[in-house]
Measured scan of single mutants.
Amino acid sequence: RTRTSFTAEQLYRLEMEFQRCQYVVGRERTELARQLNLSETQVKVWFQNRRTKQKK
């Protein structure tokens, strides 16, 4: 599997969503992935990694 390189715009949007809600599921995840031109899996994993980073 190749590592995803997020654009600055994608990271900004993901961070904004994370500040709003640390868990994104269902339709929200589908819509966010579509808007950012990413897969739902990429969005899901980004949120998982971001929550892990916050715990440290």
Rank of each mutant, 00 (worst) to 15 (best):
residue 45 V to G: 09
residue 8 A to Y: 09
residue 52 T to D: 14
residue 55 K to I: 07
residue 12 Y to D: 15
residue 23 Y to T: 14
residue 12 Y to N: 15
residue 49 N to I: 11
residue 48 Q to S: 10
residue 56 K to L: 08
residue 16 M to D: 14
residue 47 F to A: 00
residue 16 M to W: 06
residue 43 V to G: 02
residue 31 E to T: 07
residue 19 Q to D: 09
residue 4 T to L: 15
residue 17 E to M: 07
residue 38 L to D: 01
residue 32 L to V: 03
residue 34 R to Q: 05
residue 32 L to W: 00
residue 25 V to P: 06
residue 15 E to T: 03
residue 22 Q to E: 13
residue 6 F to G: 04
residue 32 L to T: 01
residue 13 R to M: 12
residue 30 T to G: 08
residue 16 M to A: 12
residue 38 L to K: 01
residue 47 F to T: 01
residue 36 L to T: 07
residue 12 Y to H: 10
residue 11 L to W: 04
residue 38 L to T: 05
residue 25 V to K: 08
residue 6 F to T: 03
residue 50 R to M: 12
residue 41 T to G: 13
residue 3 R to C: 15
residue 46 W to T: 00
residue 12 Y to F: 10
residue 18 F to Q: 02
residue 53 K to F: 15
residue 42 Q to P: 01
residue 1 R to I: 13
residue 13 R to H: 11
residue 11 L to D: 13
residue 18 F to C: 02
residue 15 E to A: 01
residue 43 V to L: 09
residue 17 E to L: 03
residue 5 S to Y: 12
residue 48 Q to C: 11
residue 18 F to R: 01
residue 50 R to W: 00
residue 32 L to S: 00
residue 31 E to A: 03
residue 21 C to R: 08
residue 48 Q to I: 07
residue 54 Q to S: 10
residue 37 N to V: 04
residue 53 K to C: 15
residue 3 R to E: 13
residue 18 F to S: 03
residue 5 S to N: 15
residue 50 R to L: 00
residue 37 N to K: 10
residue 5 S to D: 15
residue 17 E to H: 12
residue 41 T to S: 13
residue 8 A to T: 14
residue 11 L to H: 13
residue 34 R to P: 00
residue 10 Q to V: 11
residue 44 K to N: 12
residue 36 L to A: 03
residue 51 R to F: 08
residue 46 W to C: 00
residue 13 R to K: 12
residue 25 V to L: 10
residue 28 E to W: 04
residue 35 Q to D: 12
residue 10 Q to P: 02
residue 32 L to R: 01
residue 15 E to V: 01
residue 5 S to E: 15
residue 9 E to T: 04
residue 41 T to N: 10
residue 31 E to L: 04
residue 13 R to F: 06
residue 39 S to W: 00
residue 46 W to L: 02
residue 42 Q to V: 09
residue 44 K to T: 14
residue 7 T to I: 03
residue 44 K to H: 07
residue 2 T to G: 13
residue 33 A to D: 00
residue 42 Q to L: 09
residue 25 V to C: 14
residue 55 K to S: 11
residue 28 E to Y: 02
residue 45 V to N: 07
residue 25 V to W: 03
residue 53 K to M: 10
residue 23 Y to P: 01
residue 13 R to E: 04
residue 5 S to Q: 13
residue 28 E to P: 09
residue 34 R to Y: 02
residue 48 Q to M: 10
residue 30 T to S: 10
residue 28 E to A: 06
residue 9 E to D: 10
residue 15 E to K: 03
residue 3 R to G: 15
residue 45 V to D: 15
residue 6 F to C: 03
residue 53 K to S: 15
residue 12 Y to G: 13
residue 16 M to G: 10
residue 44 K to Y: 07
residue 39 S to M: 03
residue 21 C to D: 15
residue 20 R to W: 03
residue 5 S to F: 10
residue 53 K to I: 12
residue 26 G to I: 03
residue 47 F to M: 08
residue 47 F to D: 02
residue 16 M to F: 07
residue 47 F to H: 02
residue 9 E to V: 09
residue 20 R to M: 12
residue 18 F to V: 01
residue 26 G to D: 09
residue 26 G to A: 09
residue 28 E to V: 04
residue 40 E to S: 07
residue 15 E to Q: 00
residue 38 L to F: 02
residue 37 N to F: 08
residue 12 Y to S: 13
residue 3 R to H: 15
residue 54 Q to L: 12
residue 10 Q to H: 05
residue 2 T to S: 11
residue 24 V to H: 06
residue 54 Q to M: 12
residue 8 A to I: 05
residue 24 V to W: 05
residue 20 R to K: 04
residue 3 R to A: 12
residue 30 T to Q: 06
residue 51 R to L: 10
residue 44 K to A: 13
residue 7 T to P: 02
residue 47 F to R: 01
residue 21 C to L: 05
residue 29 R to L: 07
residue 4 T to H: 04
residue 49 N to W: 10
residue 45 V to R: 09
residue 10 Q to M: 06
residue 34 R to G: 12
residue 7 T to E: 07
residue 49 N to R: 07
residue 19 Q to I: 09
residue 41 T to V: 10
residue 55 K to V: 14
